[in-house]
Amino acid sequence: MSRPPTFVPPPGARAYRLRTARGEFAVVDAPVAAGAEPRGTALLLPGFTGSKEDFNPLHGPLAARGYRTVAVDGRGQFESDGPADDESAYAQEELARDVLAQVEALGTTVHLLGHSLGGQIARAAVLVDPSPFRSLTLMASGPAQISVPQQQRVKLLRDALAVMSMTEVWEAMQAMEPPEETDTGAELDAGLDDREDLRRRWLGNKPAQLIATGRQLCTEPDRIPELAAVALPFHVLSGARDDTWPVPVLDDMALRLGARRTLVEGAEHSPNCDQPLTTARSVADFWDSTTA
């Protein structure tokens, strides 16, 4: 499970529901810091079993660099509504068009950043229509399906969700693994001691969303040739270790995209949580370079 350090929005940030042409989405919206020169707006997409709170550690440092950051729960994810049983509602193109609607509602072009599954949704949005985006950052998000061990874990989760309630799955996970190691899918992030917040987030996810996006993670084709043909600045950022997409796979993807490549030492699959200051600095440096 993706485990943010805190579920409390950072100082100055506002949690609300962003109204779009495709429904309302829960967001954490952090403005540019007082005294900082405004440099742009960024939309941040979380990963599988994650949420907008995964980016809480980045808002402050990025605000200080002049960036407004808007982190969003996708359709059927934590505090954003969606159908519980209709997997077709979570087809990748549907989620991509949600992203385009979110950008339209923000009323400005954005730097797009996607973590893990969020990176694959982000690139799908760019492939539908790149015009609303100033750049694309893929954070710990690879070119195609996740690694075989992670596919096996996601399959176990999908099989459990087919026959058990969300509460039953949560209880089973807690019984099977120590609290500090409990994981519900492809995300393997730093720990949060307050299990109740994690339980609340887990129960907020719609089962159909987890089943559909879990399948996407296990079957995603390599779309890097399509993406490389888009005239956008690209950034591939990851921790120094990642067992969801191995680092050499991410290195190769960056070469194929002609992307800036950042390796965050001391971080694994969630550099936004493991090393937030280094991650924020690297992201802001890249965004700055696109407008220099």
Rank of each mutant, 00 (worst) to 15 (best):
D243E: 12
P207A: 01
R14F: 09
F234H: 05
L277G: 03
A21Q: 13
N56P: 08
A229W: 10
V110Y: 05
R39L: 11
V247T: 11
A284W: 05
D242P: 03
D242Y: 01
G74N: 14
A33S: 08
V8L: 12
D183I: 12
V110K: 06
Q150V: 15
N205D: 11
L217S: 07
S116R: 02
D81I: 03
G35I: 10
T184A: 15
D189K: 01
L263F: 00
S282Q: 01
L277Y: 09
D98M: 06
G239K: 05
V154F: 00
S165V: 13
S51P: 02
M253I: 13
T291L: 08
A122K: 09
P248S: 08
P248C: 07
L43I: 08
D193M: 10
P233N: 06
K155S: 05
R215P: 01
L44D: 01
M139F: 09
A292E: 15
S2D: 14
R223A: 08
D285F: 02
G82R: 05
P225L: 05
S116F: 06
A71C: 13
T20H: 10
A26L: 09
P271Y: 02
A42D: 09
A228W: 10
A140N: 09
L157F: 09
A254P: 11
E94F: 01
E93A: 13
V236P: 03
V72T: 11
T291D: 07
T244L: 07
D29I: 12
F25R: 03
K206N: 06
S88R: 14
E187G: 14
L58Q: 09
C273A: 13
T109H: 10
H269Q: 14
L250M: 09
E87W: 04
W202P: 02
V110L: 02
A30W: 10
E220D: 15
A42E: 04
S270A: 15
P61T: 04
G66I: 07
F234V: 02
E24Y: 02
A292I: 08
A34D: 15
S80M: 11
E220A: 15
P57R: 00
P9T: 06
R14P: 03
S51E: 01
E37L: 13
D194Q: 11
T184N: 10
P61R: 11
H115N: 13
L232R: 01
C218V: 06
A84H: 14
L263D: 10
D222V: 04
L257I: 11
F7E: 07
V32Y: 07
F78I: 09
G74R: 08
G82A: 08
S131H: 07
Q209V: 04
E171R: 12
G76F: 10
A229Q: 14
T41W: 02
V236R: 04
Q92H: 02
S147L: 12
A240Y: 03
D86T: 12
G142L: 06
E37W: 04
F55V: 01
L250E: 00
A160D: 15
D288G: 08
L157G: 07
A34K: 06
Q120E: 03
D183L: 13
V28W: 07
Q275L: 00
G60T: 13
A240K: 04
T262L: 03
A63R: 00
G50F: 00
G82T: 05
L100S: 09
T219H: 04
L192Y: 02
E268C: 12
Q209R: 14
A42T: 03
M173H: 09
Q102V: 06
L43W: 04
P207R: 01
R158Y: 01
S51A: 13
L138W: 05
A229P: 06
N56H: 15
